[in-house]
Amino acid sequence: MNPRPFTRRGLLAGAAAAPVAALAACNGVQGGADAAEDDFPTRAIDFTVPFDAGGSSDLLSRAVCLAAEEPLGQSIALANKPGANGAVGLKELVSGDADGYTLALAVKSLFAITPLVVDDPDAVAIDDFRIIATLTNEAYVLVVHADSPYQSLEDLVAAPSLNYGTAGVGTGGQLSLALLFGLAGTEATDVPFDGGAPAVTALLGQEIDVVSGSLAETMPQIEAGALRPLTVFSEERNVFLQDAPTATEAGYPVVVDQRRMVVAPSEVSDTVAGALVLAFEEARQDPDYQAFLQDNYMDVWEVDDVEARAHLSEAAELYAQNVADVGLALGDGS
């Protein structure tokens, strides 16, 4: 991993490009930049992971950056800058140079769920970014303890009262269960934990009745027979859990997932963005990267910027609508 140098890139690139820039100047618009951009990238790229090391976002970033180094022809230096579900790191990305040398990972929940929980006038929006590559679609699965009396989703929602664990306020797990129990009219209490692992631990210890978590958090326990999956909150059945019906099949149209993507600041030029898009497209074909997704139960989500953007804004509207329909206040409301 390379350190991130604060080279006087502007100066260097400017000097190198000067003769070409004079020619290119008649094109107007972007002036000398184009010439320098043609051979982008000429140095290492900084990649911000706006989450703690060791989590799903961190691991995915490492895997995809490793695969993207070869097609880019440059190394990618990764640094974790956690805080506020990614807002701290992404705000910094937005405020920095849009030269393509700074990228970051972003998650769907920040754009689609966080606004329902936290009222932040300065929140980053998807329009602040250019989506370089969409990566994964990770389903939320509803699990109960193996010794639990609930064998199906019908059993569960018919329970007189339940406690459900989640990875925290404003997570997809919380939203999915709140919507499910809201639609079903089940009396259920939300118990947010400080992350997914403590919630799964509490479920293993039967402190709580049910958890909705990512496959990465729950699959090892499902495979060990310690937890039982009852439903997945995706549109279609999950490739890793063919036997678990979707909530929609069971009559509760709750579709909540987490999606992750690589983003650059929105002002990044088309030339540079194009080079990055191509490199990451190639990275997604890398066998090691694909093996990583398989090992971590991550489904692919590989669409272009326009489609991804449409999906995110639709999801944000849908969740807001769902929450309003069921009359929920996630967290403290906003």
Binding site: M1, P3, F6, L78, A79
Partner: peptide, 14 residues
């Protein structure tokens, strides 16, 4: 920090 431990500190000299 930078050469041995590869800590991503912001620095001028590459």
């Amino acid at each position: 920090f930078i050469l041995t431990l590869r800590v991503p500190l912001p620095h001028l000299i590459a």
